[in-house]
Simulated assay, not measured.
Amino acid sequence: MEDNIGSDEGSIKEQDRLLPIANVGRIMKQVLPPNAKISKQTKETMQECVSEFIGFVTSEASEKCRKERRKTVNGDDICCAMETMGFDDYAGLLRRYLHIYRGLEGAKANQVKAMNNTQQ
């Protein structure tokens, strides 16, 4: 099997375009019964599928940013891309998660700021 995608000098290695298989396997095990086994071929298939999916969503979000003349893709862009691609249910869940995450990060930043103020 060819190690690189494409033949030009700047091509991407297969392993660099895929999520680490150990991470994919760990995520899969979380939703299966403790005694379930996952074959190597199944993990590899899932690895390719989720990597492609992430690539498609990221590409869509990147295109949105390009049209808006922005260089940074953010969580809202990913949610919008998922909605554009017809994954509204997932986009809704992701928006809720993003809202909670931003709230936690804001609270963390406020704690650090408060600690720095008390140390001065």
Score class of each variant (00 low, 15 high):
1 M>E: 06
2 E>W: 02
2 E>L: 03
5 I>M: 03
5 I>E: 03
6 G>M: 11
7 S>G: 13
8 D>S: 10
9 E>S: 15
10 G>F: 08
16 D>V: 02
16 D>H: 11
19 L>W: 07
20 P>H: 04
20 P>G: 00
20 P>A: 13
23 N>P: 00
23 N>D: 11
24 V>P: 05
26 R>P: 04
27 I>N: 01
27 I>T: 07
28 M>Q: 05
28 M>S: 02
31 V>S: 01
32 L>V: 06
33 P>S: 08
34 P>T: 07
35 N>T: 12
38 I>W: 06
39 S>L: 06
39 S>M: 02
41 Q>M: 09
41 Q>S: 13
42 T>G: 13
42 T>I: 13
44 E>D: 09
47 Q>A: 02
47 Q>R: 12
49 C>Y: 07
50 V>A: 03
51 S>F: 02
54 I>Q: 04
57 V>D: 00
59 S>F: 08
59 S>H: 11
60 E>P: 01
60 E>G: 03
62 S>D: 04
62 S>C: 08
62 S>E: 07
62 S>Q: 03
63 E>A: 00
63 E>R: 04
63 E>C: 03
64 K>M: 11
64 K>G: 01
67 K>V: 01
67 K>P: 05
68 E>C: 00
68 E>F: 05
69 R>L: 06
70 R>T: 01
73 V>K: 01
73 V>R: 00
73 V>S: 01
75 G>S: 08
76 D>Y: 06
77 D>F: 01
77 D>S: 00
78 I>S: 05
78 I>K: 11
81 A>W: 15
83 E>H: 06
84 T>V: 09
84 T>I: 05
85 M>E: 13
85 M>I: 03
86 G>S: 13
87 F>Q: 08
87 F>M: 05
88 D>C: 08
89 D>C: 12
89 D>T: 12
92 G>R: 08
92 G>C: 08
95 R>P: 05
97 Y>L: 12
100 I>N: 13
100 I>F: 10
102 R>A: 09
103 G>R: 06
104 L>K: 07
106 G>T: 11
107 A>R: 09
107 A>S: 12
109 A>H: 11
111 Q>F: 12
111 Q>N: 14
113 K>G: 09
114 A>M: 04
115 M>G: 05
115 M>N: 03
116 N>T: 04
117 N>V: 04
118 T>E: 12
118 T>N: 14
119 Q>V: 08
120 Q>I: 09
120 Q>P: 02
